[in-house]
Write a protein that binds this DNA or RNA. Structure first.
Lengths: 137, 137
DNA sequence: GCTTGACCTGTGAGCGGCTCATAGGTTTAA
DNA sequence: TTAAACCTATGAGCCGCTCACAGGTCAAGC
């Protein structure tokens, strides 16, 4: 049983371009159909792709996933690395979340403070008085 | 008074590579020193760069900032556009925040559930049993 | 004047994870 | 059998830097 790009994509519910992307960067390694040069995927590729999806949903990067897959194929346990990566990712994401929440506050405050301000034509002094006034009150 | 890249960078407290980047994409448009081909910035470029920093801190993309600057230079008021963009960005960021908070929960739940699981050597059935087990309990 | 070294320069390429554009091949229906 | 619909692989583009690189500039020391 061999699958074309669109078949594997449909099977795993990802866009075909994602299958192509993973193939291009070596996360999937299909053979080629000698007749037309198309990629040929096996059922094992769908298990691999499902693993990639799961790992991605846990915040692993594609490069990290490739590393996990490589170690695993070499018979080494990727588990310690996996624990380490996710611990760090949790920290990083906490920082990222804080930054985005601050951004959200800045944007909301700005929009609110602009509520009663007129639209101004630009002049030599100001480019956009709304933006330039933000956060100064 | 003319500034080199590093001078403008220091004046506005941004990395020199950021000045170069903005120059490359046309957000800053310095002349060239005919002697050595270096970029020459005026004091007006520092006002422009400060505006870019402020707009960026409010979530505007560099392309949007360029658009604002262009409209403003043409004498049109960018204010309506500015209000529109930030309203949309607030919505987008809300969605983004929710997704990141969900990711954070998934990661924390996974790490907690792995607490009592052993590191497993890979076999034909599993690539990494930690990842594969996540979210199934 | 000369050299050494630190520091600076512009430019090309790379990052991540897709996504789109393109030119061409395959399949399906009439 | 021809037309249209759909699929293919591949190159380039997205964003906002950041790094690598080869070469230029400049001040200190002899």
């Amino acid at each position: 049983m061999l699958y074309q790009v669109k078949d594997l994509a449909k099977l795993c519910k990802v866009p075909p371009d994602t299958v192509r992307h993973y193939t291009r960067i070596g996360l999937l390694k299909p053979e080629r159909d000698p007749e037309n040069g198309y990629f040929q995927y096996h059922i094992s590729d769908s298990r691999r792709l499902e693993f990639i999806k799961k790992a991605k949903s846990l915040g692993f990067s594609l490069k990290e996933i490739e590393h996990i897959l490589t170690e695993s194929r070499k018979g080494k346990s990727p588990c310690p690395m996996v624990r380490e990566i996710i611990s760090q990712r949790i920290q990083e994401n906490r920082v990222h979340l804080e930054q985005l929440m601050e951004l959200q506050l800045r944007m909301e405050h700005a929009l609110a403070s602009w509520e009663k301000m007129p639209d101004g034509a630009p002049n030599g002094e100001h480019i956009c008085h709304l933006i330039e006034s933000a956060g100064n009150s």
